[in-house]
Nucleic acid binder design. Structure first.
Lengths: 340, 340
DNA sequence: ATGAAAGCGCTAACAT
DNA sequence: ATGTTAGCGCTTTCAT
């Protein structure tokens, strides 16, 4: 039969409750007994039964990761975040469960309610773009379910992790300006996503700071997809006054821009510089490789989950961790062409 | 407080055990009582407590999805399979948990043991390439943990889902032959993956059936990545006797081949036809769009999980479901160039 | 076809 | 600092 907590207690010569205390890192156990109990657990390869723990302790040791599978960021982004969350959960002996949602659906909140009622996660991790869906946040607070966010649009007294995307976007555009570019275009991501707004704001900030005029024709709406990048770039390259550099709000769109450059017979970076945002695996596989902003998605998922777990353990209350960006300059950007 | 099974029993005027029987679809309940109990559950919005069910019933209502995150297929593939598994689990009120593994690591089996000991999944879903890792299958049988496989290399008395990839690859190459191609190259996937072997075998079968000779120089090793596709294509396009068509073992490599074609000034499909396998989202975003084999990954994940769940419920024992492939002819393949 | 009693493995609340 | 008791919400086993 399986080893139970009671068996460990007998072996260590203590009561079950003491073993329970050790298991849960509670106070009021002398170091000596703690050690003895730990040794017994180790020796017997004791594995606590999560169902029994949940039932008696009113906690599930489960955290749920919520994401939008309708219009989400690139699926590779979510996979990486998920990987990080999973790693943090494993380290703390929690389980992770996934909950795809559709922000647009009318039963969004009902689906969340069902998740809580059915599985009682001890907390949830929110990913963009649902990090900022007010009705969700409100409901979670009503239900008393703690949450941590990855890249929330609003900061404040929130658990989670964020990068200064606006600053990063600005740095990206400043890099282009340093290379002599004056006609710099931007391809926007899905409207209303925090990411889209910040990256656009950073672009504008850099343009303004350099005293360049912002030509409306050089700011084109995209949708975070390769195809939308191609479309956007076709508009840009058809202009009489063609931009010499294009900053796309993510790598997939930037890849589309490079593709379109090929269609127009433009060499990257000789005729046009292209850069993106995210540092997806694809960005390194292209030739020339894409200049982009590294966003450590996996790490961010891990940190968000860790903040949540810290909060759950009541050890300090957790916080919004700021993570630095890093500009990856690669072959797709270069000095501006002499003239036109 | 929460509604418990006992509350439902009282409301329906039966014993707790009867409610339990209804909950678990057990026999020995008259239709009338069953209906009455169901109505009470509905009216009270009863949600069984999974921990209590697990503890008393010795089942976890959890199934684990195992995957290799070392050299796995494209991450979008796994995300889709995962999505399907999740859907099936939800429908049956099971939870899904994820378990990334590294097939090469020495503690592979220990990690599996830990998963079972810590979480007691009622069953596991295996994804390529670990569907065919013999030590794993052996251990799972020893532990008495049922499993279902997505695209296992070996058929036989196995639960899961599979597509005839060899047949699909053959159909792909036959399509090229019909277009007049005679010099057809193949870029192989990661060695030893079932997928790589089948696709190569299908290629050879078609070549042989058409009475064409197989030139060793036209069969190049790749690794399922975009970059490996670029590399492989460079070798092919540098040949004096250049192939007029390239069949890559997946879409990522095919995309690499198209990229390399651009480098060599070759127009697709005028100068060279390119095709892939998987029908990833990317394949439709390219221009020209990629001719490929549609593999319904999401559906396959769902079916595998359903087979497993059917088996767990003891309703029929589940089987290996064969799923049809479909050839997606798009712009990247066309008639062979006149000559060279 | 239905029910009563016992207990799954752990922790909360209250001793000591 | 440690132990005792009761019980978490369900299913099992065994009656009836």
């Amino acid at each position: 039969m399986r080893v139970r907590l009671e068996d460990v207690a007998r072996k260590a010569g203590v009561s079950p409750k003491t073993v329970s205390r050790v298991l849960n890192d509670e106070a009021n156990v002398t170091d000596a007994t703690r050690e003895r109990v730990r040794a017994a657990m180790e020796a017997m390869d004791y594995r606590p039964n999560p169902s029994a723990r949940s039932l008696a302790g009113h906690r599930s040791f489960v955290i749920a990761m919520l994401y939008d599978n309708n219009d989400n960021p690139a699926s590779t982004y979510l996979a990486e975040v998920q990987d990080g969350v999973l790693e943090a959960c494993d380290a703390h002996r929690y389980s992770m469960m996934l909950r795809p949602l559709r922000m647009r659906d009318s039963d969004f909140i009902r689906r969340v309610d069902a998740l809580i009622a059915d599985h009682h996660p001890d907390g949830v991790v929110l990913t963009p773009p649902i990090t900022d869906y007010a009705p969700l946040l409100k409901r979670l607070r009503e239900l008393g379910v703690p949450y941590a966010s990855v890249s929330p649009a609003r900061r404040g007294k929130i658990l989670g992790v964020a990068m200064d995307e606006q600053q990063a976007a600005r740095a990206m555009v400043e890099h282009l300006i340093e290379q002599g570019h004056r006609r710099i275009a931007h391809v926007i991501g899905i409207a209303n996503h925090g990411a889209s707004r910040w990256r656009l704001a950073g672009y504008r900030e850099a343009i303004a700071a350099a005293g360049l005029s912002e030509d409306p024709a050089w700011v084109v709406q995209g949708a975070f997809t390769f195809a939308s990048g191609v479309e956007a770039a076709r508009q840009l390259f058809a202009l009489r006054k063609r931009p010499t550099a294009v900053f796309a709000a993510n790598d997939d769109m930037a890849t589309g821009v490079m593709w379109a450059a090929g269609e127009y017979g433009l060499k990257v970076p000789r005729d046009v510089s292209v850069c993106g945002f995210d540092d997806t695996p694809l960005s390194r596989q292209l030739w020339p490789a894409l200049t982009t902003i590294q966003q450590p998605s996996r790490e961010m998922g891990k940190i968000a989950a860790e903040q949540l777990l810290t909060h759950l353990r009541g050890q300090g209350s957790g916080r919004l961790v700021d993570i630095p960006f890093s500009l990856q300059v690669r072959g797709s950007t270069g000095v501006a062409p002499k003239d036109t």
